[in-house]
Design a protein around this nucleic acid. Structure first.
Lengths: 209, 209
DNA sequence: TAGATTGTTAATCGATTAACAATC
DNA sequence: TAGATTGTTAATCGATTAACAATC
């Protein structure tokens, strides 16, 4: 899989993730085969792009039939790493931290949330479903004990870098940053920035007359 | 502004939004000038890209000094449409719907949440801070009464298209889709897809050995 | 003035699309 | 077989970067 990770451009990979979600849905609905054209239509792409993307995979379609959903789904699952499970910790028990914790979709996709932490003494000890909010002081211990790979930064921008430093020092391999801060991390670690406010701003731009 | 909307590529525009957030933060911290190189460093870009992007704006830097944060921030604010206010409605009072409602950042940036709706009778009437969850049957009335421009889809993927149809029929101009469904909307309307699960999947991919 | 930094042009790089032979 | 659809090559398109004259 490592060669693929190196070969696939970030553009291609992001589309593969969308193919996966789309195919999973269609497959659940009972569909068994899909052509590059149909998949393109679903996702607002060209059939050329779809074929080009899928050609990167160790998987082939069949002329006149298209792609077998079941097999393609499995291939994508494995390429994207969704056949693994990732121990995850959420730092910040604000609205977004809680929403992530409560959202079953993440667990289903393989992201096991092991703990949620906060620095606010008023929140520490509070229960959210089966979790108790823990002190951020325990971050290192929690990461080590649970072999946590992914840390989610759900704190205000001003605290984001400090949290990122703690997370990487504790040994997480990747960070999902929900804050607006641009966080620096050591070489070899992975960071993905996920900021819904940027999507709102995009909308504002396109609606601006 | 309309000419700009047409000229700016989506890539450039997304970076402008990041510049805006970054500059806002630095300006609050008291910084007054920034060079293309410094801004590039903050956001992991090249100074060339930054200068190229800023050259699209009706704004100039000064040799040897760089860009005046105050003025650049104002220019970006106006280009991105953040000097306007957008009446917004949230459909779906699940974890994410509530998180958005409670997150002050959106209101600050100009997105006025007028109502939150759900179809679950158990949720309707429930209070979240100063809001009461309303029935999704009232969607059209709420949109019309409040001159809502933006609808946020925070319902499961299976219900997303129906909600999008209702929203556009009721007259919203843009949709922010948080569901994994790929929603189709009429020409002339704007849709932005915002799916945190895709960011998680990206992380899984890069962490996959 | 000398040096730094912008704004802009041209070159490079990469991503998307078109086209078509191979295949079922 | 005829027709449809893949896989792949080459062409196009667009985005990023390099380079440098203009400017402060």
């Amino acid at each position: 899989m490592t060669e693929l990770t190196e070969k696939l451009s970030s553009c291609v990979m992001q589309r593969l993730a969308r193919y996966y979600l789309c195919i999973q849905r269609l497959h659940e609905q009972g569909l068994e085969w899909i052509s590059s054209q149909e998949l393109a239509l679903e996702l607002d792409l060209t059939s050329s792009t779809v074929r080009q993307d899928i050609s990167h995979l160790d998987f082939s379609g069949i002329s006149k039939r298209g792609y077998e959903l079941d097999k393609l789904q499995q291939t994508l699952r494995s390429v994207l790493g969704l056949d693994k499970r990732f121990a995850t910790v959420i730092v910040g028990a604000g609205n977004f931290g809680r929403a992530l914790l409560l959202h079953d979709d993440f667990r289903e996709k393989g992201f096991d949330i092991k703990a949620i932490l906060d620095k606010d003494p008023k929140l520490i000890g509070k229960r959210i479903e089966s979790y108790y909010i823990q002190s951020v002081d325990k971050l290192t211990a929690v990461v080590k004990k649970n072999k946590v790979w992914i840390g989610v930064i759900a704190v205000p921008a001003s605290a984001a870098q400090a949290v990122a430093d703690q997370l990487t020092a504790a040994g997480v391999k990747g960070i999902l940053n929900l804050s607006t801060a641009n966080v620096q991390i050591p070489q070899g670690k992975v960071i993905i920035n996920s900021r819904i406010i940027l999507d709102f701003i995009q909308l504002a731009f396109y609606l601006n007359i």
